[in-house]
Simulated assay, not measured.
Amino acid sequence: ALIFVSCLVLMIDGVGFEETIGATISSISNVGPGLGSLGPVGNYADVPTVSKWFLSFLMMVGRLEIFTVLTILLPGFWKQ
């Protein structure tokens, strides 16, 4: 579900379909290059600024694991 929602967010910001899937999966799994223009011979320079921030957030989610980030973002965690 996270990958699907992330792809939708990037497509709304104007990133192409192939680049969206590649960037989302490579950001969450921390594997390196994506697909299309973000592949091994490309870079993330042409990605809009908002999408770069969102991909940075996805990289942190992938590094810290999804459940850890969800726990930190839940208000019930901070009330205890």
Score class of each variant (00 low, 15 high):
Ala1Ser: 13
Leu2Pro: 00
Ile3Trp: 00
Ile3Lys: 06
Phe4Met: 12
Phe4Arg: 14
Val5Tyr: 07
Ser6Pro: 01
Cys7Ser: 11
Cys7Thr: 08
Cys7Met: 15
Leu8His: 09
Val9Ser: 03
Val9Thr: 07
Met11Asn: 10
Ile12Thr: 09
Ile12Gly: 00
Ile12Leu: 10
Gly14Trp: 10
Gly16Asn: 07
Gly16Tyr: 04
Phe17Ser: 05
Glu18Asn: 02
Glu19Leu: 01
Ile21Met: 13
Ile21Tyr: 11
Ile21Phe: 07
Gly22Thr: 05
Ala23Glu: 10
Ala23Thr: 10
Ala23Val: 01
Ser27Gly: 06
Ser29Thr: 15
Asn30Ala: 13
Gly32Thr: 08
Gly32Ala: 06
Gly34Lys: 02
Gly34Gln: 04
Gly34Pro: 06
Leu35Arg: 08
Leu35Pro: 03
Gly36Cys: 02
Gly36Trp: 03
Val41Cys: 08
Gly42Ile: 11
Asn43Ile: 02
Asp46Ile: 03
Val47Phe: 07
Val47Thr: 15
Pro48Phe: 07
Pro48Gln: 05
Val50Ala: 06
Val50Phe: 03
Ser51Trp: 03
Lys52Pro: 02
Leu55Gly: 07
Leu55Asn: 09
Met59Asn: 12
Met59Ser: 14
Met60Leu: 12
Met60Tyr: 05
Met60Cys: 02
Val61Gly: 08
Gly62Asp: 03
Arg63Asp: 04
Arg63Gly: 08
Glu65Thr: 11
Glu65Cys: 00
Phe67Asn: 11
Thr68Gln: 05
Val69His: 08
Val69Phe: 10
Val69Arg: 06
Thr71Arg: 13
Leu73Asn: 11
Leu73Gly: 12
Leu74Ala: 15
Pro75Lys: 13
Pro75Leu: 07
Phe77Asp: 07
Trp78Tyr: 12
Lys79Thr: 15
Gln80Pro: 14
Gln80Glu: 14
Gln80Asn: 15
Gln80Gly: 12
